[in-house]
Design a protein around this nucleic acid. Structure first.
Length: 1006
RNA sequence: GCUGAAGUGGUGGAAUUGGUAGACACGUUGGACUUAAAAUCCAAUGUCCAUUAGGACGUACGGGUUCAAGUCCCGUCUUCAGUACCA
């Protein structure tokens, strides 16, 4: 009986589904373990072999943990809101919900045939109203919360209101907007409710703010930075402008410090933690205020300004001030100029008439350069002098103010105090523009480069800081600045608040309506607010988001329901928010929803479920989410913890990034032929000539052979009614061919290739000497356009899911990028066939109750040990080869013993569950193999009595010698030295030294 | 530039603490079976010299430590990923 994988796999997949074998339970005596994959976006293209890699790894781990006696939660779902479905809807008019449903059906079928042990009863789809009801609810909770920096956590906004009404806002230390005004309790209580709401909005964890977006008028939409190339839209090449829009923002910056600290508590790779640290970008230093020296010209300007708005913040004597952030307040005496970003607000106000032309020209030049250009070109130093001077806070000396594009408007305050002796960029700038470079370091030469080593710094030429080291000087400088009222210690984070509004249709609607332009939250009991129907999925002609097209999109606050827009009276019926939430909203908390077994409607997950499952023990997914999804999820979880909705501080304890599976593209070479003929002919009738790989290489160097040339000329002249043609070659071109036409030996299936495209139908082929046509191969990203996509359906059909699973693991280390080559799958497929034969032959089951031999036991236990270690280390590729070795050994040993072959199946079952279940049941078990405990490793079976010692001379192994392991050092040395091969090797020489490491090696030196 | 990962046969990759480099596969070559093909089985396969014994070289490159280095140290180069001229 041979191995009928299709039949076996279908049977067990049905069995698992019928028996709900992998459904998790929310209470158990066993310890819990939560294994999660990053859920997929169900795209129309379906899965290719690269997608399941991480799922296979997590499935192996989940199945292993079940064998190890854990209660395992291993769910799956879909991140089903997103742009592609919307774009498809725009093109076809098809509702995104329908497209999404169709795609999910395909995904589910493809996933099912690979045999994953998912608990589908807990499936989550972010686009389902039952699910996004809770996404909306979390949004409301964020709106109803503020962050207290003293306690480093979030509290209900009602508590803040109470404080305001009793004490005003001077005593609170919130994470809030920069420009909040101080008020007393009396002032607060005297405000109108609308004024109070405006103020509260500055404190909420989600708030409305004017943010700059990339607006593309032609497309009527906002574009992400990636969607813009050279200042125009990637799609269509339309111009893009910066536009201010009122949008929802998430105050993730409040959590910057906790997001940073939390990294130390989780088991993620260093590279991932590092990118999150960089993203958060903490720097400790001081903010310093420099006064701008006034000129009569500026005074006039100030007076003009003052009549327009009463600026109370600006002091009488110094109406203009420049605030900078520095990590090196200790070097303040080395500041010999200041640099503002060209976009800085002050530039236009302080520039002198003489410098105006220079400055304006420079601003125009930098505006033209894209961010990318500016970044790529770090070597070119450019800038302009404003003509204005700032005053040094201590020396009161004038400091020239420059503008330069190495200072970025978007970071810090958009201005720096430039200390050329201590910062290379300032140094280069100063050198370029001949600005003095005062040296404020003791015993350091700065004639070539700046000196930026903090640790070795001793300050000089700096008044009260002289002789101090970096730490002391920093402290003192901050203290002195505080005395002057011109600075304070400050920690800066790069992390910006996240814009949360999208001008799209296919996303979560906000549970928000507007009364006199002020946002109001809809009560929890009325959620979900379901996406309205629209005629078209495009923005409106007025540039409103697609929801602006909905006719029934108004909130009746009396009836508490969504009603027709016609009823809007702004008394009881109000307009609803037109934006939708971004893709990361639904994916920032989905792991909690899986915890609930009953999918109750009154909670997103019950308290018992949350307490039982806590957080994800193992999370597997791609590294492209390093700073998006993985940062936002951590933020939401921390917030939910603060407000008592969940009990954990971090969502994912351990995280592994699987590497990408690349495609192995195949190329054929087409000859580029020029030909001379007498009669005019339609070019199309001439056949294309393709040459095999090594022929192409030869032709590139030597040109066509005489035979080839005459063959081509003959083919042409035949078509040309026998008139002679002269062919002339001008090289070959490499074109992609579909990888499915190519076999393991890189030989092309010529017939399939000819039928592939109409224009190849009559193509001619010049073969290798061996009579085959070979392609050349290259590793590239797997993509439809490169014809290197391999569909798992075809693999499952031809080799089976177990082969696919084993092969994906066998390819290489999980975290590494690696090329797919279907040819190699015969290796693991052959292994499964051999394995089958170990259990079953023509007569039926071979396995019997025979006593296992010593060798049998040794093979089994060595395998148990290795596989267990490998799974714990996520080294799945090496365990596949361990299985092969074990199977080869057991076959050679002619093992038929059930006491060996039965536990061996359990080891294999996480990797190749179908064949394991099948053989397991044939051995007489009536329970699924997934319920079997993992075999116990016993050291005693591996104990050896002798060792095959490598005997090396000067470190080079010459021969091996079998010696008892209980032999001591001296005896080993004696035996080895007496051996004839040793004597032959030494050839009369006396060894200088003999190194004997018992149980390892013998090395003879000399 | 910075940060992180990596560089081993024709290919994917093993070598967990410094101790027999190339496990396990793919591919290639030869053989068996077959009318033939497929499938299966057997053998060889890092490079070079000798073709019997054996020897030399070999883990990106150049040094070093050590009885012994793919592994440790110093320097250089290359590739991939991320990124921020971050004050």
């Amino acid at each position: 009986m041979s191995y009928h994988f299709n039949e076996i796999e279908a049977r067990w997949q049905k069995y698992w589904a019928d028996n709900q074998t992998f459904n998790a339970v929310n209470s158990s005596d066993k310890p819990k373990y939560y294994v999660l994959d990053m859920f997929p976006y169900p795209s129309g293209a379906g899965l290719h072999v690269g997608h399941p890699l991480g799922y296979i790894a997590s499935d192996i781990y989940a199945r292993y943990k079940r064998h190890k006696g854990f209660n395992v939660l291993h769910p799956q779902g879909y991140d089903s809101f997103g742009l592609p479905a919307e774009q498809y809807a725009i093109q076809t008019g098809q509702h995104p919900a329908i497209t999404t449903e169709t795609n999910i059906t395909t995904y589910r079928r493809q996933l099912d045939q690979i045999g994953f042990s998912f608990d589908w009863s807990r499936e989550v789809r972010t686009s389902n109203p039952e699910y996004y009801k809770w996404t909306q609810w979390i949004f409301i909770q964020l709106f109803e919360s503020w962050y207290c920096k003293n306690h480093q956590r979030a509290f209900p906004i009602s508590e803040l209101e109470k404080v305001f009404s009793e004490e005003g806002n001077s005593g609170v230390n919130p994470a809030c907007d920069d420009d909040v005004a101080l008020f007393t309790a009396e002032e607060w209580n005297a405000m109108s409710s609308e004024q109070q709401q405006d103020i509260l909005l500055q404190y909420r964890l989600t708030y409305l703010a004017e943010t700059e977006v990339n607006w593309c008028p032609a497309l009527g939409t906002v574009l992400a930075n990636d969607e813009i190339v050279n200042g125009v839209s990637e799609r269509g090449g339309h111009p893009v402008i910066r536009k201010k829009m009122t949008q929802w923002s998430m105050r993730i910056s409040a959590y910057a410090e906790r997001l940073l600290q939390g990294l130390d508590t989780i088991d993620w790779t260093d590279s991932l933690k590092e990118s999150q640290r960089n993203w958060i970008g903490k720097s400790v230093g001081a903010s310093v205020t420099f006064n701008v020296k006034m000129t009569s010209e500026m005074l006039k300007q100030v007076q003009h300004d003052e009549t327009q708005r009463h600026s109370e913040l600006v002091s009488e004597s110094h109406p203009y001030q420049i605030e900078v952030f520095t990590t090196r307040p200790d070097t303040i005496f080395g500041a010999s100029f200041m640099t503002l970003a060209p976009e800085h607000d002050l530039v236009s106000k302080i520039t002198t008439t003489e410098q105006q032309a220079d400055v304006e020209a420079y601003i125009e030049a930098t505006a033209k350069r894209s961010e990318r250009d500016r970044m790529a070109d770090v070597k070119t130093i450019s800038g302009a002098f404003t003509g204005a001077y700032a005053e040094h806070p201590f020396t009161k000396e004038p400091i020239p103010i420059w503008i330069g594009d190495y200072v970025l408007a978007g970071y810090g305050t958009g201005a720096v105090m430039s200390v050329p002796c201590g910062d290379q960029r300032d140094y280069d700038f100063a050198k370029h523009f001949n600005i003095p470079i005062p040296n404020i370091f003791e015993g350091v030469d700065i004639s070539e480069d700046a000196f930026s080593d903090k640790e070795k710094t001793i300050i000089a030429n700096s008044d009260f800081l002289n002789g101090m080291n970096y730490k002391k000087a920093t402290k003192r400088a901050i203290y002195e600045l505080e005395q002057l009222g011109q600075g304070e210690g400050k920690t800066n984070y790069r992390l910006r608040d996240a814009v949360f509004s999208r001008q799209r249709y296919w996303g979560e609607p906000f549970p928000v309506y507007y009364v006199n332009g002020k946002p109001q939250m809809i009560d929890k009991q009325h959620l979900p607010i379901v996406l309205p129907e629209v005629e078209k999925y495009l923005p409106t002609e007025e540039g409103e988001p697609p929801l602006g097209r909905a006719d029934v999109w108004a909130w009746d606050s009396l009836k508490a329901e969504v009603v027709s827009n016609e009823l809007i009276d702004n008394e009881s019926v109000f307009p609803l928010e037109l934006n939708t939430m971004p893709g990361w909203a639904g994916s920032s908390w989905y792991f909690f929803r899986y915890m609930e077994d009953a999918m109750r409607d009154e909670v997103f997950a019950s308290e018992e479920a949350l307490n039982y499952w806590e957080n994800v023990d193992l999370y597997i997914g791609g590294s492209e989410h390093a700073t998006g999804h993985l940062l936002y999820s951590r933020f939401w979880v921390k917030f939910m913890k603060d407000r008592g909705f969940v009990g954990v501080e971090e969502p994912f304890k351990k995280l592994i990034n699987q590497g990408m599976i690349l495609g192995t593209s195949a190329f054929v070479y087409r000859l580029n032929i020029d030909y001379l003929i007498d009669i005019e002919l339609n070019n199309d009738v001439f056949p294309l000539f393709f040459v095999s790989e090594s022929v192409a290489k030869r032709i590139e160097v030597e040109g066509l052979s005489i035979d080839e040339k005459s063959r081509i000329e003959k083919a042409y002249s035949e078509l040309n009614n026998g008139f002679p043609c002269i062919a002339d070659l001008f090289g070959t071109s490499k074109i992609h061919t579909d990888v499915s036409f190519v076999n393991a030996s890189d030989e092309l299936d010529i017939e399939a290739f000819k039928n592939w495209r109409e224009e190849f139908k009559d193509a001619e082929f010049i073969l290798e000497d061996t009579g085959t046509f070979k392609v050349s191969r290259e590793v590239e990203k797997m993509s439809k356009s490169k014809y290197n996509v391999v569909n798992p359906d075809a693999i499952c059909e031809q080799y089976g899911a177990d082969s696919l699973r084993l092969y994906e693991m066998f390819l290489g280390p999980l975290e590494q990028a690696k090329p797919w080559n279907t040819a190699g799958i015969t290796g693991v497929h052959g292994f499964l066939k051999k394995l089958w034969k170990l259990y079953v032959d023509d007569k039926g089951l071979k396995v019997n109750a025979a006593e296992p031999s010593k060798d049998n036991l040794k093979t089994l236990h060595k395998t148990i040990k290795k596989v267990e270690e490998d799974i714990e280390n996520f080294s799945f590729n090496t365990s596949v080869s361990t299985f092969m070795i074990a199977s080869n050994e057991l076959t050679a040993q002619k093992c038929t013993s059930k006491s060996i072959l039965e536990p061996f199946l359990i080891l294999l079952s996480p990797y190749a569950p179908h064949i394991a279940e099948e053989l397991w049941s044939r051995l007489g078990n009536d329970q699924s193999i997934s319920t079997a405990p993992f075999p116990k490793f016993e050291e005693k079976h591996l104990v050896e009595s002798s060792k095959n010692y490598p005997i090396s001379f000067n470190g080079k192994m010459r021969f091996t010698l079998e010696l008892p392991l209980d032999m001591n050092k001296d005896e080993i040395e004696k035996t080895v030295m007496a051996h004839e091969k040793t004597i032959a090797q030494l050839d009369g020489r006396t060894p200088k030294k003999v190194i004997v490491v018992p149980g390892k090696i013998v090395n003879i030196v000399g």
